[in-house]
Every structure is written in C-alpha cells, then in structure tokens.
Design a protein around this nucleic acid. Structure first.
Lengths: 223, 223
DNA sequence: CTTGAAAGTGAACGATATTCAAGGTTGACT
DNA sequence: AGTCAACCTTGAATATCGTTCACTTTCAAG
C-alpha cells in the first residue's frame, strides 16, 4: 500500500475542487452573514453566492451552525496570526498579551463584519477561545512564570476574557458604550489576568506596532 | 376623571386574569425552555402548558425572543432580590459585591434551569446586566468612593463581568472547567473590579450567609 | 339586557433548514 | 480506451415552526 511514486504531490482534481468549494462557501457565508446576521442569512443565498446547489453545502458542513463556526474560526485564526506576527519582536509576555487584547478589541469595533456576527455572541466567544486561545494561554503561562501575571488557570482566565471581550464589543455596537472606553476595558482585563492597574495602564498606553494586513476574505465589490 | 370610590382597589377580573396568564406563560416558558433549550422549545408546547391557544401568547409577548427575555429577567430579578436580602447586614460594598458574584456563579452552576438557557448566552448576559446591574453598579460606585475599588465606569465593569460569568458557567456545564474553579473566577472578577488579589481572596473565602429560598417558578411535579 | 371593544382561538401561512432520489464526475484498474 | 464503484452535485420535496388573522367569546359599562 505504499506507492513509491505519486502519493500526492498533486492532489487530485476533486481534492482541489473541494478545497476551493469549501473556501468559497466560507467566503460566501461570511459575506451574507456579516451583512444580514447569522440567523437571517439563508442557506440558499449562501449556496447561490458560492455558486453551488443548496444540498451541496451539506457535504461540507453538517449544519448552518457549523458553517457559522467555520466563518468565525477563519476570522479569529487570521487575527491570531496577524497579532503573533506583529508582536514577534516583543519579549515581555504581558506586553504581547496586552497587545493581543487591544488588537482584538479594536478589530472587533472596526471590522464591519463583526457587527452582525456578534448577534451570536456564544459562537463568537467560542471561536475566539479556540483560535486565539493557544497564543493567549501561552502568554499567560509564560507571563506567570516570569512573575508578571498571577498564577492560576490560564484556561479559566481566557474563558472569562473572551466572553468579556464579546460583551463589551456588543455594547459598543449597540451604542451603550463608546469606543473610547475600549482601552479601559483592556486595562481591566489585564487586571483580571493578574496585573496591577498601574502595570496594566502602562502596557496599554505604549505605542503599538502596525498589524500585517488582514487576509482578504470578502470581495469589496461583488459582480 | 377622578372616581372617588373605586379607582382600582379591585382591579377588574380581566386585569387579574391577564396577570395570571402572563405569569403562567412565563412559568410554562421557563419549564419548557429550561428542559429543551430556548431554540428547541416550541411556542405551541409553551402555549399548551400554559393552557391557552397558540395565538394568545402574542397578546402578551411580541415574539418568542421576548418571552425568553421575560423568563430570564424573572430569574435574574429573583436572584438580585435574594442576594440583596441576604447581604442586608453587611456594610462593606466590596464584600457585598463579592457575595453577589459568588452567589450568581453558584446559582448558575447549581440551578438546572440555567443549563439549557445558557445556550443563548447573549440574552442571559443582557438580562443579568439589566436586573442585577442596579445592585452591582451601586456597589461598584460606593466601593470606589470608599477606596475599595478602582475608579472607573461601573457600567463598563459590569458589562465585562456579566458576560464573563455567563462564559465560565457555560464552560462548567460543558465540562470544560470544574465547578471547583468558580471561586477563582470570582477572585479574578474582583480583580477586574479593582481589588488586589489578596483582598479578593480574602473576601471570597469568608463565610457566606444563607440565601432566602428562591421564589418557586417551576412546579416540581406537573399533573 | 344590550353592545362594542378587548381577549382568546387554532387553522392556515410563509419561510427555510435539511433530506433525498436521481444523475454526473473521477480516477484506479483492466 | 473502457469499465465501474465511489463519491459529488443537484434542486425539488419535506418537515418544522414562528407568526398572523378572521372569527368567537367574554366582560363590564350604560
């Protein structure tokens, strides 16, 4: 069963089409869902925008919920990658963690896709937990060893943090809170991680490096 | 337009029936929704359990979502009242706030109704924000004046906190986190409010007074 | 007792996530 | 090249609710 020659230097046409279809679906879903909201988006519209039959979607995702999760995970993954890249030159885990919080908060309040997506706050927080979690938990653990953060369960801390982030972003989009207060939110979340308010404020007010551009998912002008 | 005699010492039979109907609906919805989850609960089942026609529900609530909100607000209101009562003898706002956090966390992890309800984490956090918020924000503001908490926007702090609470409770119900870690969650949320970890740990480990019994909403054995 | 307005009813409607039977496509194997 | 089983794609059909509405019942004021 071990072919010497061509195990899969070229994956077959099918595999390639599947990869393209899956990507097209996620992009289509991202477009429609961030325009109308996850619930209001219909599978038919998504399928048509991805140029495939309605039933085909179910070869790629078990349900509409699954598709939404995939969209969110894509967004979060991209964000995690960009933050990691931007922070590559920093040494202090707490500093990088602060940068991560600020970036997520800013992006959420800026990227128009988030507005509608946040309607399903549970899914958003989950995706954030899973895709940004590895980076965040790592920083929390290292920061704790370095005496910067309080000791304690990084998973617990990150669970609290993701949901809190989603909550404050929701409040901003609803106009219950101004975007000006996002830095204060970051400070409080750093305190939650075990920093003193002074340390937290210091980290939050430092200049921030530019983020690499986001991997474009949604087409600017369809058609 | 001022009737001397009987403005409404006895509200009419209609008004009384409406009050009963509304309560019956909320109880029925609470039962069904906390058994099957908000989404899986059907309006028909709720209406039947409240012993009324399907259409009648819409005389009381504009939509299923509205009904769910009413259920959650009822639960949160009761919780706020019970905490407020139990804490009546305490003086330190930070102490009462700690008690509030612990109580909400414990209740959420104990009361079986929460399990399914948490599926709609956004609505739960909203209801908690609105019904427990007045108490919590008051404590935060007083505690800040007393030098116990950090200065800052209590609304912001409470928004972060409600969503974080919901998040950690979800994690507990999913088995991603043990209920043992709820006190640590409380400590971290107190740090978020501006306490030092030492102060927070002290408050969390103090003995807690008994809560008054919860106002029974769901009938133990229907039929 | 009459009566008009408000409350109650449940069958019918519309929307839509999901399924499925039928018909293509692919590529390994002769 | 030809065959074929496995897998993909399709879009019409299905099942399931949330919500509406034309109609009936109830109530209390006159």
């Amino acid at each position: 069963m071990n072919d010497e020659k061509a195990v899969s230097p070229k994956e077959g046409r099918v595999a390639r089409r599947q990869r393209r279809n899956r990507a097209a679906l996620i992009r289509a879903a991202s477009d429609v869902m961030s325009l109308k909201g996850i619930d209001a988006a219909t599978m038919l519209e998504i399928a048509e925008r991805a140029d495939m039959g309605a039933g085909t979607v179910y070869n790629y995702f078990r349900s509409k919920e699954d598709l939404a999760v995939a969209v969110l995970e894509e967004i979060m993954q991209d964000l995690a990658l960009r933050v990691e890249t931007a922070a590559r030159s920093f040494r202090d885990p707490a500093h990088i963690y602060a940068l991560t919080l600020l970036t997520v908060l800013d992006t959420a309040a800026t990227d128009p896709r988030w507005k509608q997506l946040l309607g399903r706050s549970g899914i958003v927080a989950d995706a954030m937990y899973r895709r940004i979690g590895p980076l965040a938990k790592d920083l929390l653990a290292n920061g704790a060893s370095a005496g910067r953060f309080a000791k304690g369960d990084p998973s617990l801390c990150w669970t609290l943090t993701t949901h809190a982030i989603v909550g404050i972003c929701l409040a901003v989009y609803r106009g219950e809170t101004s975007a000006e207060s996002l830095p204060e939110a970051a400070i409080r979340l750093l305190c939650l991680a075990g920093l003193t308010p002074e340390e937290a404020r210091d980290l939050v007010t430092r200049p921030r490096p530019d983020l690499p551009p986001m991997r474009v998912l949604s087409e600017a002008h369809p058609g």
